[in-house]
Design a protein around this nucleic acid. Structure first.
Length: 927
RNA sequence: GCGUCUAUAGCUCAGUUGGUUAGAGCGCUACCUUGACAUGGUAGAGGUCCCCUGUUCGAGUCAGGGUAGACGCACCA
């Protein structure tokens, strides 16, 4: 084996082996365990959030597969209507064309072409991460069977009246020329203005001043509203205004909605361009005048002067014209929330159009109940509050999009615009008895991408066919996802799955935190702080990293700053840490926190951990590969250390599985890290050396230790495998032939990933052995302590004297003498009788037992005195603390007996220590 | 406005139902090339658990109030 772990030399080959041997498939036996991959956009490439979530999903999948469950990780990608269409349109634009030049059909075949060519990026990257979904079941949301499910759901919901078409105000993206749902609009506060404009009364008797942030919409005003009880405006209610620039007459109305405190207390009402005004327009039966075109230019409803102007140019012109007419009162600075499309960043317009909607109220009810009843569980639990809050106020879902790429709406119109919904044109004709002479044209619109995503839990299992998978893997076991798509996706899956299968889609919803950079900022291209998980695996040199971070920027002026920052932070580029280190980092960071600041230091630390595992394995193999490990029988004697490491392994295993059951991957990761490094490497491997290297040990003892070394390592590899698939597989391949494991699966090409997870074995949990080794450790550490602080070379053999040795101490000493001599490097150990006096010595305490290292020629008096002073101080504080507690009458009468007992024991310990330390201090001082 | 979350070592974070002297990794200090590993070993330093008040025998943990920050939903034209 190489001296250091080289991940790149093993990973890819390892993965190909697993995939080509079909090891990712559900076994078909055992309890079903299923995870649905949140389908990433085909346009996407793997980011840190994916890598994090995929690590969690893969760890769960591998763990349950090894536990013997019938484990399926269902994989697939999403057609991502808007995102994908934008990518392909951008390519066309670069050639100086638009999608309209190609026409719908040709454009769509271009998109399919793009998908075939570039759509596989993310799934290839997932393979680099070592993920183990069943690739043979990979699904694309526009596959035929998925499309069939989409149509089926649409038709059924329509038949039940839960999908309807209507003319309403929608969020309109004037760049994309499509409606978007509320969720696709982000409202950010921006600096703007409040214009105060004078509206003259029609009878010339005066005027009223309205305040607005959007003066250009005045072209579509159909009323001015005041509060019914606003004393200032009582006389105006019912009068008419002559709307400036248009000359239209509009009424002054009274409505509770108006806040008299805000602005002037008079609101211009534009029902076709504002959601609140729309409602008011309905209440008062106001006309709705749409003054905008689909790309947000002024349309022909407006006076000729403004027609064809962009909305923002029109704003300037209208303000100027009002000013010129003496109607502009003032302009105040004003902060306002500006709605922008989450894809385009364009300012969204409320826009009056015909769209398709899902009436969600009746679907929401059972979806709320599924969580309230505990049938579906959020982890961490408080996310259910977010869920309820949204679900209780849920609005009808606008599902039609004026795009080309997506599931086309299964609705047809005749020449009189009567609408017919059905699975296809033939069915529509039959259903509505339409003869062939009636021409039908299909609705041009497609469905919101999230409509098909909502069907993911059952559509991927073959619905509407009644398949065995549908039976077995619905509900799935756990959904692992980020909180950003609870509404977009999670809630809608619950609604749709309940509706169409009667079952819940998943039992647990594990909501992960969001990966941010090391100082808590969101990773974004414009901040230049994005890390590519693949770069952490393979490494990247500085120049390539800078180039990557500064290329293709929306705002090129930021490039210089980003380059500078990158050069400072990664002066050496990024090392190749390997997949296992990256995965382990994600696992270790997966606490309940909602923001996770990604710290490169952690990856480096866990890369070192990989190396530690690698070298520990080298040590084990060096001592076992050409030796008898007891596979074929032969007498074996297990040392105290051998029995201890098994007991310690069992303890770790138990806690590890408990942590996984609670989705506490951070705890699980820390447990195995601690066991591997601090127990197995630091202590156990050292404890085997005295056995293996000593002529005094019998062949049976050596065999027992070799057997333990190889088999604990083999168990450890299986324990670590869900988090670190590559390194464990690689080492395991070398280790398993020497172990006594009963192989599962293909015996020609065995793989760790289909072996059984280590089993908890109560018979190996041995408290006595655990406490014996703790005693040994304290003994050894005590001596090392003296060496460290007295500056005695670790190589110098020492002679130790022991005082106050109990029968129990004596037993432990006998059992562990070989280990202690070697690890503490002792030349001799002598137990002093009660009446024997000791020479001046440095001391260490192990419980009541005192270890003395005679100072003659070795020890610096002052150093030992200061060491003792420190220990004395500690002991004194402890005595004072416990005494204080125990002398408190209230504590003694109120605290549970066990707690009091514990305090008493602590006090006794501390007092006896203090006594010994005082004596020792006196002895040394006297020298 | 309604709701959720966060604040612990220089940095990034753990700390279960209140009960040892509050932990880990990284970083830092000193020593160490010892035949698994310097991506290592041994020893060590480092904390007003954001602040205040309360409940309790006992609070990092519970309650109330504040401060600072993050996020979600709804929004006033």
């Amino acid at each position: 084996m190489d001296k250091t772990f080289e991940p790149q030399s093993i990973e890819q080959q390892c993965y190909q082996q697993w995939e080509s041997n079909g090891l990712f498939k559900a076994s078909g036996s055992g309890d079903p365990y299923c995870i649905l991959l949140p389908p990433p956009n085909v346009t996407g490439s793997l980011h840190m959030g994916h890598a994090f979530q995929h690590t969690i999903m893969d760890a769960l999948t591998r763990y349950h597969r090894m536990k013997g469950d019938n484990t399926l990780w269902q994989v697939g990608t999403d057609h991502a209507g808007i995102a994908t269409q934008m990518v392909v349109e951008r390519q066309l634009n670069a050639e100086g064309k638009t999608r309209h030049d190609l026409g719908r059909e040709d454009f769509l075949s271009k998109v399919w072409e793009w998908k075939a060519h570039s759509g596989g990026t993310i799934t290839q990257q997932m393979r680099r991460l070592g993920t183990s979904p069943d690739w043979d079941r990979e699904v694309f949301t526009m596959d035929d069977n998925l499309s069939k499910a989409v149509t089926e759901v649409f038709v059924k919901l329509h038949e039940e009246g839960l999908i309807y078409r209507g003319k309403r105000l929608v969020n309109w993206d004037p760049v994309l020329h499509t409606a978007v749902s509320d969720l696709e609009v982000v409202n950010e506060e921006e600096a703007g203005f409040m214009w105060h404009m004078r509206y003259p009364l029609a009878d010339g008797s005066g005027h009223i001043v309205v305040a607005t942030t959007r003066p250009e919409t005045m072209l579509g005003d159909t009323a001015v509203a005041v509060h019914p009880e606003d004393e200032r405006y009582q006389d105006f209610i019912g009068k008419e205004i002559k709307l400036p620039l248009t000359g239209r007459l509009i009424p002054i109305i009274a409505d509770d909605y108006v806040d008299p405190e805000f602005g002037t207390g008079c609101v211009k009402i534009t029902p076709a361009h504002d959601f609140n005004d729309y409602d008011m327009g309905k209440r008062h039966n106001l006309p709705m005048i749409n003054v905008l075109t689909a790309d947000a230019k002024i349309n022909d409803e407006a006076p000729e002067a403004y027609r064809g102007m962009d909305r923002f140019d029109a704003r300037k012109q209208i303000v100027a014209d009002l000013d010129a007419a003496g109607l502009l009162v003032k302009i105040d600075d004003h902060k306002l929330k500006v709605p922008r499309g989450d894809r385009t960043g364009a300012v969204i317009e409320p826009y009056l159009t015909d769209q398709w909607y899902v009436a969600v109220e009746s679907l929401a009810k059972p979806a709320i109940e599924a969580v309230e009843s505990g049938e579906i569980r959020f982890i961490p639990e408080n996310w259910n509050k977010t869920y309820y809050q949204w679900m209780h106020n849920i609005q009808d879902w606008c599902i039609s999009r004026q795009l080309w790429w997506g599931h086309r709406i299964p609705a047809w119109y005749d020449d009189s615009n009567n609408v017919y919904v059905g699975r296809d044109e033939a069915e529509v004709r039959a259903k509505y008895s339409l003869t062939d002479d009636v021409t039908l044209r299909q609705d041009e619109d497609v469905l919101d991408t999230w409509f098909s995503s909502a069907l993911w839990p059952f559509a991927t299992m073959g619905w509407p066919e009644q398949t065995p998978e549908l039976e077995t893997f619905v509900p799935s076991s756990v959904l692992v996802t980020g909180f950003d798509i609870i509404f977009f996706w999670v809630a809608r899956m619950i609604m749709m799955t309940k509706k169409f299968t009667g079952k819940i889609p998943f039992r647990d919803i594990y909501i992960t935190g969001l990966i941010r950079d090391e100082s808590g900022d969101k990773m974004s291209k414009s901040k230049g702080n994005v890390l590519d998980p693949i770069d952490l695996i393979d490494g990247i040199d500085l120049e390539s990293l800078v180039a990557k971070r500064t290329s293709g920027m929306m705002q090129p002026q930021l490039a210089e700053k980003i380059a500078k920052r990158t050069r400072k932070q990664f002066s050496e580029g990024i090392n190749a840490y390997g997949t296992d280190a990256l995965r382990f980092t994600f696992a270790a960071m997966a606490s309940t926190s909602r923001d996770i600041n990604f710290d490169m230091g952690r990856v480096e630390g866990y890369r070192n951990f990989c190396n530690k595992i690698w070298n520990a394995s080298r040590f084990v193999l060096m001592n076992t590969e050409t030796e008898d490990t007891g596979r074929d029988g032969g007498e074996m004697v297990l040392s105290l250390a051998d029995r201890w490491i098994w007991a310690r392994f069992q303890q770790t295993l138990k806690e590890f599985e408990a942590a996984l059951a609670d989705y506490r991957f951070d705890i699980a990761a820390n447990l195995v890290y601690e066991f591997t490094w601090n127990q197995f490497c630091d202590w156990y491997l050292e404890l085997t050396k005295p056995v293996l290297n000593s002529d005094a040990s019998s062949e049976a003892e050596k065999r027992g230790t070799r057997h333990t070394l190889i088999n604990v390592l083999e168990h450890l590899m299986r324990l670590l495998h869900p988090f670190m698939p590559y390194i464990t597989e690689t080492i395991w391949q070398r280790v398993v032939p020497l172990s006594t494991l009963q192989l599962k699966g293909d015996s020609e090409q065995p793989s760790i990933m289909v072996q059984a997870f280590p089993e908890q074995d109560a018979s190996k949990q041995d408290e006595q052995v655990l406490s014996d080794i703790e005693w040994v450790k304290r003994f050894i550490v005590g001596i090392r302590n003296i060496r460290g602080e007295m500056d005695i070379s670790p190589n110098k053999p020492l002679n130790a004297l022991l005082k106050h040795v109990s029968a129990e101490d004596s037993r432990k000493l006998d059992a562990a003498r070989g280990f202690i001599d070697k690890l503490a490097r002792l030349e001799s150990v002598k137990v002093l009788g009660a009446d024997e006096s000791a020479p001046a010595s440095a001391t260490a305490l192990v419980g009541d037992m005192e270890i003395l290292i005679p100072m003659a020629g070795l020890i610096d008096k002052d150093a030992e005195l200061s060491r003792l002073a420190k220990a004395l101080d500690k002991a004194e504080k402890e005595v004072a603390r416990t005494q204080g507690k125990l002398s408190n009458e209230k504590f003694v009468s109120n605290a549970p007996e066990a707690v009091i007992e514990k305090e008493r024991a602590k006090l006794a310990d501390a007092e006896s220590q203090l006594e010994k330390l005082k004596q020792q201090h006196a002895t040394i001082s006297a020298l």
